[in-house]
Amino acid sequence: MTAMTLAKSATRARARRRGHGDGRTALGFLAPVFLGFAVFYLYPAVRGAWYSLTDWNLLSEPRFVGLDNYATLVGDPLFWNSLKVTAYYVVLTVGMQILGGLLLAALLHRLTRSLVLRSLLLVPWLVPSVTTALLWMWLLDANLGFFNHLLTAAGLDNQGFLTSPDLALPSVATINAWSGTGYTALLLYAGMLLVPPQIYEAAAIDGTGEVRTFLSVTLPLIRPILAFALVVSLISSFQLFDTVAVTTKGGPVNATRVIYFYIYEQAFTHFKMGYASALALSLVLVLGALTFVQMRLLRASTSDLT
């Protein structure tokens, strides 16, 4: 062993001893959090995995069935449909929120510092999602809804926004874009405030147009916060439940039966806890795989400022 490695291991030993010193304090700090984690995250995760191997209606004893639920799941067209529908939804709503948010943030940033304006744009995000869903269900009613009044006033046909299989999912995505865009815009606006104003002055002197400045200056500089906003909206989009539960209940013809709603239905209306758990665990795996993609995205997101 060389002297260097000896020295290194000595420091490590010292660090470890000091670590022991913190141990008791750490226990105090961590006990509540750890208790919560153990009881409501770890324990249920283990149980959930176990349920997924059983046939259980929640009312009698679970019966071990091995991998039967997974075999069913692979051949269940509604499971694959729900993944597809969820993915389509996520792409639509995240796309709308990020693009809308970018546009709004840029406008805010270049036009005004008005707090009132920013607060007003934030209001939809604060409205409970159940309220949002009810409200939009009424606005989008095929006959009596406000949007169809607009269409018919313009001489167009009325549309079944939530009842036609082609429109239902985009409508749900729009509803949640309405509620999330203001929030995203605020995040991005904050990122833009960090860009030194001199850069814009320089661009103005060079005679660069606003659009080009935005694309070549602002956008690259706010990449980290853009990534953050993207992840936030991605995570919440995957969990779509409220809007669907209130407006379409998965219909028409499974067009909005997203994975969360499908799992919920299996567990709580069809008495199939085992199968629901298998679906949920599969979702964990799918999302785990997607996280890799996300990680790469995040890694590519260092700003040119730092």
Binding site: G19, Y41, L42, Y43, Y51, A280, L283
Partner: peptide
């Protein structure tokens, strides 16, 4: 604070971040 198992425990928390809440909602 420094204590044994800190990084492993924290790693577990981070992993839990990735788990969609519905997975723990059913057993909870």
């Amino acid at each position: 604070l420094r204590f044994r198992g800190r990084d492993a425990l924290f790693g577990l928390f981070v992993a839990a971040l990735m788990v969609p809440p519905i997975f723990t909602l059913l057993p909870n």
